[in-house]
Design a protein around this nucleic acid. Structure first.
Lengths: 242, 242
DNA sequence: GACAGGGTCATTGTATACAGGATCCTTGCC
DNA sequence: GGCAAGGATCCTGTATACAATGACCCTGTC
């Protein structure tokens, strides 16, 4: 995790105060961006040095990351970046289809003008970013759309659950994306979904979500493999470099 | 929280080793049993004395309880037992209907003989406990049934989400139960559900869950009140006694 | 009597020290 | 060469000390 460590050090020197929340955000983001591959060891002292805080703060951050399923924290063992199995990936997608479908159905016809405009803007942004081949920007826009859905969910409990599921699916998408695939862009899905929401068609919105997430899952390589991931998670020192 | 404190002290002296997990379990249970009413202050030192450990352990436990939505932990403020609002209660029930309904549907026709027998035994136990007026035992059996569903969910992700939702609904049931109501027993619901699971009727199982949870919610007193709960949560020292 | 100001106390935030456990490497044996 | 036992090292678990923030109370004023 050395390169990442250096980058963070630079950022940290710039901004001054660091709290556990900052650490959670930075690590989560790093995992999402695959700067910290699955299995990476995250010793408390090392993280503390990176962020310039002591173990107390790091511990709290790691506990929170564990409850977000980003990190694996086992008694008396070094925390590691989690590597969800193929099975768990499928289950996460299924759960997200259920929850996000319901959220979309609840949201149909209830969108305020301001929210609708922000959604539309993100959808346009995604298309543009895809057009100019800017994949990171496209991902940002795509995530923003789904996060907006979660945020505006009339049912806040479901909304919070959706936020968690969006994070988890993003991680496994990064993990299992077919290497030759440049992008997970599904042309028109988001636009169609927004249209359904706008005209208040709850079932179309639910189906739109279901279809979108099924297509996304189909883009992944979830064929059973030599259990390399699992072995790596168990014996895995090969991936890290500290 | 003094009486509870003394009881725990006794238990703790008996058993020897106490870890953060034990604290989480004991506090969770105390909240569920309404030994610790909503709004109760939970200072770290006090809890530490009760369990005979230092603040480090208590802090970890409180963080976990906060992520389980049992406790409210805000920066620089004493952790308090959470008091979910009426709105959140409704949303929690809706979320649970969605998730548990899906779990039941997935489980229909897939129950192993052993699991089915354990479920049936708990259902019988619930009816018996209700018959002899033993409400705590009845609750235990009822909870056990739903926890078994969560545990055996073919989709583990949904199963974990369901576990969380069962806890949260149990808390709000205890909170909002009509005072004159002796029991939240719904005769036949569990038996009918098990029958649907057994004969592999996924939609009947889903509907069984939906109906069961709607009836349960209807037993609660969720009429809007003088915001007493909210005020209590905000200004509330009246409830605690440490 | 209500309200603003300031001081005190209670409680959390953070860092650090020490103890215990896990891992890793080395050594000695087969 | 492979493998088990032992020790060194790394890392986490826990307790404690100090800093800092927020809550509470008391006082003085209008």
């Amino acid at each position: 995790m050395h390169e990442w460590q250096e980058e963070v050090l630079a950022e940290v020197r710039a901004g001054s105060r660091i709290s556990d929340r900052d650490i959670v955000d930075k690590v989560r983001r790093a995992v999402l961006m695959q700067r910290l591959p699955p299995g990476t060891r995250l010793p408390e002292v090392t993280l503390g040095e990176v962020f310039g805080v002591s173990r107390s703060v790091v511990r709290k951050a790691l506990t929170r990351l564990a409850s977000e399923h980003v990190v694996d924290q086992r008694p008396n063992q070094v925390a590691r970046v989690r590597a969800p199995s193929i099975e768990e990936t499928r289950e996460t997608f299924a759960a997200r289809r259920l929850v996000e479908g319901e959220v979309a159905a609840l949201l149909a016809g209830r969108l305020e003008a301001a929210s609708r405009d922000r959604l539309a803007a993100q959808a346009r942004g995604e298309i543009e970013a895809h057009g100019r081949g800017d994949e990171p920007a496209r991902i940002e826009h795509s995530l923003a759309i789904h996060h907006l859905l979660a945020e505006h969910s009339p049912n806040r409990v479901l909304g919070a659950m959706l936020t968690d599921l969006i994070l988890r699916t993003s991680i496994v998408i990064a993990l299992y994306k077919r290497p030759n695939l440049a992008s997970c862009f599904l042309e028109g899905d988001h636009t169609a979904l927004l249209a359904a929401l706008e005209r208040g068609d709850a079932e179309a919105a639910r189906e739109g979500i279901r279809h979108h997430l099924e297509s996304l899952e189909a883009l992944l390589d979830l064929s059973p493999r030599e259990a390399s991931i699992d072995l790596m998670a168990i014996l895995g020192r090969s991936r890290e470099q500290a």
